[in-house]
Amino acid sequence: MSHLIIDAHIHLDWYDKRKREQILNELDRYHIKGLITVSSDFTSSSHNLQLAKNHRRVYAAAGFHPEQQLLTRVNLNEIFSFIDEHKDDLIAIGEVGLPYYLRQEDASLSLKPYIELLEEFIKRAATYQKPIVLHAIYEDAEMACDLLEKHKVQKAHFHWFKGNSATINRLKQNGYYVSVTPDCLYKERTRQLIQLFPLELLMVETDGPWEFNQTEWTHPRMIHDSVKTISEIKKLSIETVYNQLLANTIKFYQLSTTE
């Protein structure tokens, strides 16, 4: 566990203060080079940006998590104004996407306004040349790809990706990145994704504080087990996998290599 790694997708602002401080205080102990903290709304975006300003190895993205009811136009414009004002301080736009799980709970939910909202975020990613972090599950990934291609956005990161082989091939052809969570230790679908997706387009994440283990809260140290699993599935040395995953994340998010 002496190799450096980056947690490419975490909701740092969702942790309670005690756990968040523990994570930040233990970055060196667990060889965590950085945390990409994504946001769920305006308040979340503001909080994460402040965390990034206070901690040099925290990098903030701003966005609106799609698995929630849409906000009023005034509230949404507040998020867009925040992105416009702080574009130079934000590492990416995200987490944004489409409400797959919300639609499972409410089949009457209209997808059209969410698609329109996602396109607005994608336009800003194109305008500001920022990476975009996507929550687009199963067939929703195809709709996200349509919009990304329409606006010629190349730096797309599909987190917690789940999709069929055709969608996997489309992501690969477009050079989009995916990140895998600690569920790769036991979820066959995630293990298959690792097998099929090129190492050069993979990153690792926790999506914390999402819980993977009922007896252990989610901490970035858990991604070291994910790296080991990727190494085993890919049949590559652990050092090769660590180096490639770290290089991928640094390249995608244009991070400094000296911190």
Rank of each mutant, 00 (worst) to 15 (best):
K130W: 01
K234M: 09
I137V: 15
N243F: 00
Y101W: 15
P198W: 00
R20Y: 06
L202K: 08
V38Y: 02
I132E: 05
F161Q: 02
A92I: 02
F82S: 13
I23H: 07
L27G: 11
S108L: 05
L98N: 04
L185A: 11
D225Y: 12
N54W: 00
Y177K: 01
L171Y: 09
G175D: 09
E116P: 03
E139C: 04
A144Y: 03
E119N: 08
G163K: 04
H135W: 05
H135N: 10
D7W: 01
I23Q: 02
H9A: 11
H11A: 04
W160S: 13
H224C: 06
K251Y: 07
G175V: 07
K53P: 03
I79P: 15
E95S: 07
R20I: 05
I91A: 14
C145Q: 10
E21F: 06
I230Y: 06
L71Q: 14
I6D: 00
R191V: 00
K187E: 14
Y138D: 15
I32P: 14
I230V: 13
P198G: 10
A125Y: 10
M222C: 08
K234S: 03
I91Q: 06
C184H: 01
H47Q: 14
Q254M: 05
N174Y: 07
I83Q: 05
K53M: 05
Y138C: 06
K130S: 10
I93K: 01
A107K: 15
L134V: 09
F212H: 08
I233V: 09
D41N: 15
A8E: 00
M203Q: 13
P113Y: 03
K251T: 12
H65P: 10
R221V: 14
L27D: 04
L27Y: 10
Q214A: 08
L24K: 10
S226W: 01
D13M: 05
T72Y: 04
Y30T: 01
Q104G: 13
P66K: 01
I233E: 07
A247H: 06
G34Q: 00
L118P: 15
L147R: 08
L51P: 12
Y186M: 02
D140L: 12
Y59Q: 06
E149L: 13
S237G: 13
S256A: 11
Y15H: 03
G34Y: 02
I194V: 14
T215V: 00
T72W: 01
K155F: 05
L118K: 02
L199Y: 05
T249G: 13
H31Y: 11
L102N: 11
L109C: 07
